[in-house]
Write a protein that binds this DNA or RNA. Structure first.
Lengths: 107, 107
DNA sequence: CGGATGATTGAATGGTTATTCATGTGAGGT
DNA sequence: ACCTCACATGAATAACCATTCAATCATCCG
């Protein structure tokens, strides 16, 4: 069984199914993180403050998002700043993310 | 922890998180089914023929989609015809589904 | 009424994934 | 150097989920 809805990861060249990407997004915490990042980069402490989850748990979720290349991280002093990956940023105004296989808009 | 991204199920009145709906979609088989149904209603045998999964497995997935009210089913003689639920059908042309909390377009 | 076709259900199993706890790392302040 | 703040990692556990098998239900036809 193989879905037609696949897209090629730019960096690895491996084929990533749309379902796999959606699976990353299909989590309350991770979706909330993406929501936050739609309004701009934030460091972990800020994300954590707005979501109110355990820090270590958030860290695990951030790693899943990073591995899926939905977000990018860079260090800034003691903080680590997360932002939406360029590849998923929607060009049109309004909150939307582009997964390659599909576009998700949060009306 | 509670996401802002929630929507109220019309029939049950219960609150359904966006993540939960995405979780239903985040599966190769179920996503492929939705893809098929975007081009119109089909009965189980037809879906099965185009996907090539075990019939009983498809049935389980169809139940998940039904429970999530993403698809509707009606009996037609020996067949059972599945179609996209009205509530998720996109009004704009092009293949898209409306989850309430967000809109997913398959470009 | 059988029997055949088309589809659903339930139980069992294995694999995946979220969560927690304990620990480790990196950077700035004193 | 030491301590503290900010975050990440790894292992362990528990919950969940997809898949398979066996059995059942519904409809049509001879």
């Amino acid at each position: 069984m193989k879905s037609e809805l696949t897209v090629v990861d730019e960096a690895l060249g491996t084929e990533v199914s749309c379902a796999k990407v959606l699976k990353v997004l299909a989590d309350e915490t991770r979706l909330a993180v993406i929501e936050q990042l739609l309004s701009g980069p934030m460091h972990v402490g800020q994300i954590n403050a707005s979501l109110g989850v355990e820090q270590t748990l958030l860290s695990h979720h951030l790693r899943v998002l990073r591995d899926a290349r939905l977000v990018a991280s860079r260090r800034d002093g003691k903080h680590v700043v997360y932002s939406l990956a360029k590849s998923v940023q929607g060009q049109r105004r309004g909150r939307a993310i582009n997964l390659g296989c599909c576009l998700i808009s949060f009306d």
